[in-house]
């Protein structure tokens, strides 16, 4: 439940992060096999992967930016656009649907004043739908950052949101 702001997305990657990516590359069987881990390392620091950062990572992995972007945009968990301090991943798959995921989505839209795919004006939350989180016995479920929250009810959602500033 970090409260840290993301570092800016335009500056060059700092030397420590470049070194992390170089290490990932060395430990992988081929340079490009380190792609997902490298993009995740950038995202952990900056919240998302900007065009500049993508090009920098691609160069470190002997890839063209287009090749790496083809990989980056394939995945649900690599963000190519800025996100808020806390990303809410709300499960919209079938077990949660039976248990009220649509109501949970409507409540979050109302509380946050945004639609899925958007970020609150204060940069606090981004709301994204996600596929089945494998938490079907505690549906409906969502993740905020790395934390899993199940058995969602209106009261619980309000209390959970309060934990993230």
């Amino acid at each position: 439940m970090s409260t840290a702001e993301h570092d800016p997305a335009s500056a060059p990657l700092d030397p420590a992060l470049r070194e992390t990516i170089a290490t990932l590359r060395r430990e992988s069987e081929t340079p490009r096999a380190a792609g997902i881990d490298a993009l995740k390392a950038v995202q952990k620091r900056h919240g998302h992967v900007s065009d500049d950062h993508l090009a920098e990572v691609a160069a470190l992995l002997n890839m063209t930016p287009a090749e790496l972007d083809g990989v980056a945009t394939f995945y649900n968990l690599i963000f190519r656009r800025p996100v808020g301090r806390h990303v809410i991943l709300l499960c919209d798959s079938v077990a949660c649907w039976v248990m009220g995921a649509t109501a949970a989505r409507n409540l979050l839209r109302q509380r946050l004043g945004i639609e899925p795919g958007e970020t609150t004006p204060d940069g606090r939350f981004t709301l994204l739908p996600i596929v089945c989180l494998g938490c079907c016995d505690r549906a409906p479920a969502m993740m905020i950052g790395d934390d899993l929250h199940g058995d969602l009810t209106p009261e619980r959602i309000d209390a959970i949101l309060e934990q993230y500033r």
Partner: peptide, 11 residues
């Protein structure tokens, strides 16, 4: 890669 909707056993 447990992603089959409705599945939560491998977790």
């Amino acid at each position: 890669d447990e992603m089959e909707p409705g599945s939560f056993k491998d977790r």
